[in-house]
Design a protein around this nucleic acid. Sequence first.
DNA 1: AATAACGATACA
DNA 2: TGTATCGTTATT
Length: 596
Amino acid sequence: MSEAAAAERPEDEDGGGGGKVTMETPNAPVYCICRKPDINCFMIGCDSCTEWFHGDCIGVSEKAAKAIRVWYCPSCRDRDPSLEIKYRLKKTREKEEKEADSERDDKTDGDGSSTPQLRADRRRGSQIKRSARMCGECDACLRTEDCAQCDFCKDMKKFGGPNKIRQKCRLRQCEVRARKMLRVRDEELSRGGARGRGLSRRGAGHQTEEEEEDDEEGFSESELELYEQYKAAGYRDLVWHSEEEESESLRKKAVKVKHVKRREKKPEKKKSVSAPREEARPRRHKVKQRHRERVRHSERAEGGAKDVSGALRQCLGPGCVQPARTNSKYCSEDCGMKLAANRIYEILPQRIQQWQQSPCVAEEMGRRQLERIRREQQAARLRLTMMEKRFHELEGIISNAKMQQVQQHEEVTEGDGDDTDLQIFCVSCSHPVNPKVALRHMERCYAKYESQTSFGSMYPTRIEGATRLFCDVYNPQSKTYCKRLQVLCPEHSRDPKVPADEVCGCPLVKDVFEPTGEFCRVSKRKCNKHYCWEKLRRAEVDLERVRVWYKLDELFEQERNLRTAMTNRAGLLALMLHQTIQHDPITTDLRSAKDR
DNA sequence: AATAACGATACA
DNA sequence: TGTATCGTTATT
């Protein structure tokens, strides 16, 4: 029997069976004893003449019809009294009859003889029903198979979709009653070889059934083929590929979970219609959903081996049929590793190929940087050796100078020449001092203040092959090592006491820079002109040495970073995580011409 | 207005 | 209990 569902279409209130003169679809076929079109009310079909009847016209309510298995219209029964209306048996019957009774009471349609009836539409296959959205007669309604290609099909679970749209296959959307937007879309027709004629015309505007000349086949050849393939192979093989297998199954699961969740919510919702939860709903719909999705995801990822329905989850290892361990997607470490390995085997070659398709700009830049760093390192090393040489030279000069003899007269003549009325102020203590002793004073004054502060680091200096650079005296209180130049640290090294007979020994120069080969031969204690000259000259050299070491250190770090970057580039992890996309260089290179 | 999403429900 | 697909609502 083909039972016709009731159709209280919201947009047409006229649900009554009789007296419905309808303006819609003027060319629509007419049915029933009333010879009026189908107006979306409940209809029932005769299993003999196959004609359709309005439930109201022949006094069969929709609910009552449920109990009927075979139904014949009054005229057929008149013609052939042997035709007998048959009812369903079993438990449903009782219930349904009760319902039918109550409905009869409601409708004051007391005629119990016109029991509900149904019919099988033999011409068309008995499954085709009429409903609010199905005329039951058009090609689309007659179609029983999904095309597997339209967006609605792709949304379906059986085609691996997320089941979000939940609409009938576009090719099965009734050409008359389904909402237009759900029917086949024009663009899709012109694409992919789907037949364009009837459908694109249909899209053009208002349609009547007349307009739908029967077009032999709703599917294109390719569609049919695909569908056959799908049926033969089992859609799994057709749609899924090994790499997607996992995500695919997860997607399926997601749907499952969703259903369960909904079901959980249902009773609660029914009980408290105006629960406060409901009020916050509108605007945040999407956000909430996203959130839920995330939660779902994490449930899947971290949750136990059972899915929400309580079933054991299958291990995702390749070919493995064991249940997964709790808190894992796999039954064993081995399966996880196998899947991971498979993934690598599958993805990596492709990524490598992608990678090799274009030259690596970063690599090129890195190489250039590295060259630059090498050059600078070389220069720094050269400078360092030079400074070491200077260092030794200086030590040589100093020891040489020590051997000079003190010359009494020079000391006297020099010391007397200065006038005494001139005064300068100490830079540290700002006391006025005699220029003769100013240098000595300022040096000592500075040392006094300087030694009051510490200048340390947590770590001792470790420079191989370098002598006498940093003071490096450990301060147990602050647990630091002094980082002043050793020769300049008044805090930790006192100027040695000068013996009475020591000569100044400062190399004398002409025009500031030109060494004369002569040495100052004044007694060291009394020479005000070259006070602490060794210290200052040593400091000069040492400071430069330190600078070069710093420079080398910096360059070394740069090199290390660069090398790390270069080694990691296009490594396994990087290739698995990222991919190189070849953009059109003309349209996508946003750098200005000069930057290129 | 079209589209996407989804609760809801009939039915298997 | 799951599937198909409807009508409604949110979003674009």
